[in-house]
Simulated assay, not measured.
Amino acid sequence: MKIASNGPCLLASLALLACSTAHANEQAPEAQSEWKVSIGPGVMVAPKYPGSNKLEVLPLPALDISYDDRFFSQGLDVLGVNVLRDENYHVGAAVSFDFQSRNEADDPRLRGLGNVHWGPKLKIFADYSVSMFTASAALYQDIAGTGQGLLASGDLAINIPYPKGWIFSFGPGVTWANATYMRTLFGVSPQQSAASGLPAHQTSSGVRDVHLNAYASYDFSKHWTGSLQVTAGRLQGSAANSPITLRKTEFNGFAALSYRF
């Protein structure tokens, strides 16, 4: 199973991780069961909030469960379904979490801006693979009323298997965000400006970031796999120019040790 990646670096990181893990699993002998289960501990490093110059560490399970390549729970996609599927493509939907949030307590500069809470998003995705290449696209719509609007992403991954259990994957991606998302995460209204001291900043829909993903995994045995995902992104447009943004370059990492049943 391959899942389209999402634009914000946090989501792109784990989505490409899931995609590359799928390629790794395709190399291994398949069990007869329609169930495929891989689980283990993981740790993610990501910006404290979008545009932050500080990083935070978040423990997350490395989860990959699927049934008949139809229903799945994988990475940040808590529950999903491949509506259309074939050896080379998938089209489907999922309920996904990306944990994007911002609290006034995160930085003294944010006081007066109000908090932005994380919540579930409806994800619509499609991917297509040919030879070593996987192209993917996804839409993420806020369904929790957090004001995070709509995101659209496109990514390309080159998947390179190596002998002795190694898998490598890398490729570029881009994220577009609608006006609601940009206003919530990077805008500063006149009222927020007066309360925080930051200059007012009017945002608009447009490209949020461009990013590059790199992934590597190694099969220690038939059941144990170690993996590392690193994503570097560069904020663009309204996001890059926001007075909230302290660092335009975003770095994310996810390391995991998984047991495949």
Rank of each mutant, 00 (worst) to 15 (best):
A18Y: 02
S20V: 15
A22Q: 10
A22R: 05
A22W: 09
A24D: 14
E26G: 12
E26S: 12
P29V: 15
P29S: 13
E30S: 12
K36L: 06
K36Y: 02
S38P: 00
I39P: 00
G40K: 08
G40S: 04
G40W: 04
P41L: 09
G42Q: 10
M44N: 07
V45Q: 09
P47H: 05
Y49L: 07
Y49G: 04
P50S: 10
G51N: 05
S52I: 08
S52A: 14
K54F: 00
K54E: 13
V57D: 07
V57A: 15
P59R: 14
P61R: 11
A62E: 09
L63E: 00
D64A: 12
S66E: 13
S66C: 04
Y67L: 09
F71T: 07
F72C: 05
F72V: 08
S73Y: 06
G75Y: 11
L76P: 14
L79V: 15
L79Y: 04
L79E: 01
V81N: 02
V81A: 15
N82F: 05
N82W: 07
L84D: 02
R85W: 02
R85T: 14
R85K: 14
D86S: 13
E87K: 14
E87G: 01
Y89R: 04
Y89V: 08
Y89P: 00
H90M: 07
H90F: 02
G92H: 09
G92K: 09
A93P: 00
A94D: 07
S96F: 06
F97R: 12
F97W: 15
F97M: 15
Q100R: 13
S101W: 01
S101D: 12
R102A: 05
E104V: 09
E104K: 03
A105I: 08
A105F: 02
D107W: 01
L110K: 00
L110D: 03
L110Y: 01
R111E: 06
L113H: 02
L113T: 07
V116M: 05
V116R: 08
H117I: 01
W118G: 10
W118R: 06
G119V: 10
G119L: 06
G119I: 10
K121T: 13
F125R: 09
A126T: 14
D127E: 12
Y128D: 01
Y128R: 06
V130M: 01
V130L: 06
S131M: 06
S131G: 09
M132D: 10
F133D: 01
F133V: 15
T134Q: 03
A135G: 10
S136R: 03
S136F: 01
A138R: 11
L139D: 07
G147Y: 04
G149N: 11
L150G: 05
L150A: 09
L151Y: 03
